[in-house]
Design a protein around this nucleic acid. Structure first.
Length: 154
RNA sequence: CCAGUCGGCCGGGCGGCCGCGACUGUUCCGCGAGGAACAAUCGAGGAAAGUCCGGGCUCCACGGAGAAACGGUGGCGGCUAACGGCCGCCGGGGGUGACCCCAGGGAAAGUGCCACAGAGAUUGAACCGCCGACCGGCCUUCGGGCCGGGGCAAGGGUGAAAAGGUGCGGUAAGAGCGCACCGCGGCGCCGGCAACGGGGCUGGCAGGGCAAACCCCACCGGGAGCAAGACCGAAUAGGGAUGGCGCGCGGCGGGCAACCGCCGCAGGGUGCUUCGCCCCAGCCAUCCGGGUUGGUUGCUUCAGGGCCGGCGCGAGCCGCGCCCGAGAUGAAUGGCCGCCACGCCGGGGAAACCCGGCCCUACAGAACCCGGCUUACAGGCCGACUGGCGAU
RNA sequence: GGGGGUGUAGCCAAGCGGUUAAGGCCGGCUGCUCAUAACAGUCUUAUCGCAGGUUCGAAUCCUGCCGCCCCCA
């Protein structure tokens, strides 16, 4: 039963993020592995989540996964037109590609869910936000995802 | 120079670093399916959009074909694979003009509707009016006057619309009553492929509007859509076949039999008990078929675009000579930066232009492929033409 | 990819060719009450989603757009 579930909010710890050189300088080579199966997205839904500027990150530590680190991107139709959705997803992917190597050896599935504000957020802010969210999740922080309520009983 | 009309085009450029997808090549890894690295090449649009039409392609249905029903289209001719698209022409309307707009067949096939106002609204009428020729009556100064019967539809008024319009004649007043012109109907003639135009004779006029009301006529349309369709096919559960082992007793029914179904008893489980409820058959092996997640294919080179030459007023057609060519699939074409154009502002200059600064760069993302239509769009370029003003 | 519905005042809505577009809620004012509510009376509020067209006349009919909602694969 889902009734006895109490989401324990964990205090978000501040993590040192190298602020200088966020946008300048060539990003280190990093190959982005993306999630493509619907089942993997649904599985990540049950894990912890952390919010950033213009997005939410879901984390699912997968031990036996063949690839150690994978990222998925979700941009729903409600957010905007096709051009806007494309732009948001590409910027988020690039932000992840710039931010991911700084958090060290991460393992598991991360799903980035975009919000509409992501289209106007400065790119360095996006990169820093992604790095912070990933670090928070890897350190065990974040908020547990609430299970979806089935009936409207109060 | 100002104002305007029409048509066509562009939709920032160059470069650096780090990335993405496809294909080809080389190398490496792997028994293999396949994977990795590197290099070269290519990698969004004029609307890729809306999904409003038309096709190709695929499957389904159907003897060929036609009809009914339903839906669509609607001047004529042409273009086209086809179209509700485009071109040319005709007719009507608007504009000084360039030019623009029009669902533009049929109202004597039938049905229906036309509110309010108005006297009258469709086999239509006389409210205010006009007349006093004709008939009757009264009066008379014998000129005529008045009243009634009656005649009329010109004028007023109502309306979107009131039995052709204007003018002259005519008349008591009037009226296609007569005439001229215009409009309309009928019949020839001429021009044109045709829509239609021109002109002749003739008819005094036959008769309202609405078909984006039902309808009639002509023409067109079978349905669904690449998530179409084809192939491969995991785990788990379930289905079928065969074999092995197992399957309490009795009755009834079916069957040659193996066996199957139903009922009762026995047995087991639950439960304190009566009662009640549930179980009473499978397990294993091999094979087969359906099928979900997933994968492969369809999948991009064809009614393709551009240059050139020829034909056509044009839409287009022909010729091949040359050049070009996205293919993703939780979905590639991106992130950051520099310079320069374009634009704006300020300053200088007679001008070309120079210097400094700043901002903007729209609408928007392929999803099987084409032809159109419609809608969105910062800024800019080119050409043709019209009207006005000025100069020569 | 395919299909359906809907848009009328701040809200819910009727009207589907004919004067000036019902009705209810809300709001304003007045009465009643010591006061509020309720009740009674009265008043205001409409580019009929937008743009063209047909018609004498359009919220209504036709065409093209726009927004919102829903369904199927």
């Amino acid at each position: 039963m889902l009734s006895g579930f109490v989401p324990d909010r964990i205090v978000s710890m501040t993590i040192d993020i190298p602020s200088e050189g966020a946008a300048a300088g060539p990003a280190p080579s990093f190959r982005l592995e993306t999630i493509r199966k619907r089942a993997d997205f649904l599985a990540a839904n049950a894990g912890k989540r952390a919010n950033g500027p213009g997005f939410t990150v879901l984390y699912r530590p997968v031990g036996e996964s063949p690839t150690a680190l994978r990222f998925g991107f979700t941009v729903t139709k409600k957010i905007g037109t096709a051009t806007e959705r494309n732009r948001i997803r590409r910027r988020l992917k690039e932000a992840v590609r710039n931010a991911a190597p700084r958090v060290g050896e991460a393992r598991g599935d991360f799903v980035v869910i975009a919000r509409r504000e992501a289209i106007n957020i400065e790119f360095p802010v996006l990169v820093a936000g992604i790095a912070k969210a990933i670090a928070t999740l890897l350190a065990g922080g974040g908020v547990l995802s609430r299970p979806r309520r089935q009936t409207g009983s109060q």
